[in-house]
């Protein structure tokens, strides 16, 4: 029989960030111990930065034993492409970049094609890449606090051989016992930072000194307004109205995606604490800056079923 040992002299209380970190590392390792060919989806944003940092910690002193996959749309901010190369190099990981060849050939872009832009570059592009490289598990940086339909998302989310999410066929997750078994052809999306909130992410970036894209900090940038959105003119592909001239504004981004779809906020925050301060004092939810959610009600739910994260 076992007998309890006396408590440690100094009571050690793990902080919320320590508990979240330990949980995420557990999830990352559980996948590597069970998967045949895992990959980490890397979108260059702050959530990806945290997820990558956690992977470095989980497998130290080895580099994370899987490649990074960037499903590119060719329309990301230039600063994101710089960061992508740097992050992969510093982590000692292979970087796979996939661009949907059909979208490339047809010149799909956010100005002319609306929802089709996301469908083809991101949703289709992701499915193509997973199939092409035969990845059976893909890590994603989605969080449950982002959006209503994600609040009930599993950490291990099962996809059919066609990469579809079947909401009726998800497994209960008890304790930390993840059932990682799958039939041939099926794949799993795994979300190691499910339980992190936006504030947790920022605090962790601050605490750990994680390198993030400078776009998160305020700087004078050429911008135009489109309806409610303040957009940055990141290169000369941006369609200006006749006579329109970009205005230099001090702006930063709360979320990053394709630059013609990412709304900026006017800001003076140039340091992490200032960014966090603005975030805490702000009165609108994070995803408001993303055009993708405004398409239709429950659009995330639908996109998820089709294979987008």
């Amino acid at each position: 029989m076992t007998t309890p040992v006396p408590p440690p002299a100094e009571g050690v209380s793990l902080t919320h960030l320590q508990r979240l970190e330990a949980e995420s590392i557990h999830i990352l390792r559980e996948v590597v111990a069970n998967a045949d060919n895992p990959v980490m989806l890397y979108s260059v944003g702050k959530d990806s930065a945290v997820m990558l940092h956690l992977a470095k910690k989980a497998f130290y002193p080895a580099p994370p034993p899987f490649p990074l996959l960037h499903v590119d749309t060719t329309w990301k901010f230039r600063a994101m492409y710089d960061m992508r190369e740097k992050a992969a190099r510093e982590a000692g990981m292979e970087l796979i970049v996939h661009q949907n060849p059909e979208a490339l050939a047809r010149g799909i872009n956010p100005f002319d094609h609306g929802g089709l832009h996301t469908d083809m570059w991101k949703t289709e592009g992701l499915k193509q890449a997973l199939t092409k490289y035969n990845f059976d598990v893909a890590f994603g940086g989605a969080r449950r606090d982002e959006e209503k339909s994600r609040a009930k998302e599993r950490v291990f989310s099962f996809r059919t051989a066609n990469h579809r999410w079947d909401p009726k066929n998800q497994r209960p997750e008890l304790w930390k016992l993840y059932n990682t078994r799958k039939a041939k052809g099926e794949s799993i999306r795994v979300f190691p930072i499910s339980n992190w909130t936006e504030l947790d992410i920022w605090q962790y970036i601050h605490l750990e000194g994680i390198d993030i894209v400078p776009l998160y900090f305020s700087a004078p940038r050429p911008t135009v307004t489109r309806g409610d959105l303040l957009l940055m003119v990141d290169d000369d592909r941006f369609r200006l109205e006749p006579g329109e001239v970009p205005v230099m504004r001090s702006v930063r981004f709360r979320t990053l995606g394709c630059y013609p779809l990412s709304g900026a906020v006017e800001s003076t925050a140039t340091t992490l604490p200032q960014v966090i301060q603005e975030m805490l004092l702000t009165t609108t939810s994070e995803r408001q800056g993303r055009a993708i959610d405004h398409d239709q009600a429950a659009s995330m739910e639908k996109k998820k079923q089709e294979g987008y994260f």
């Binding site: 390792r29 580099p63 930390k176």
Partner: peptide
């Protein structure tokens, strides 16, 4: 924390012949 030490081994970390680490929560 007041209980005796137990750690289920999740993954054996072997980046090279000189290192063998036992990872777990």
């Amino acid at each position: 924390q007041d209980h005796a030490f137990r750690m289920p081994v999740q993954w054996v970390n072997r980046p090279n012949l000189d290192f063998r680490g036992f990872a777990g929560q």
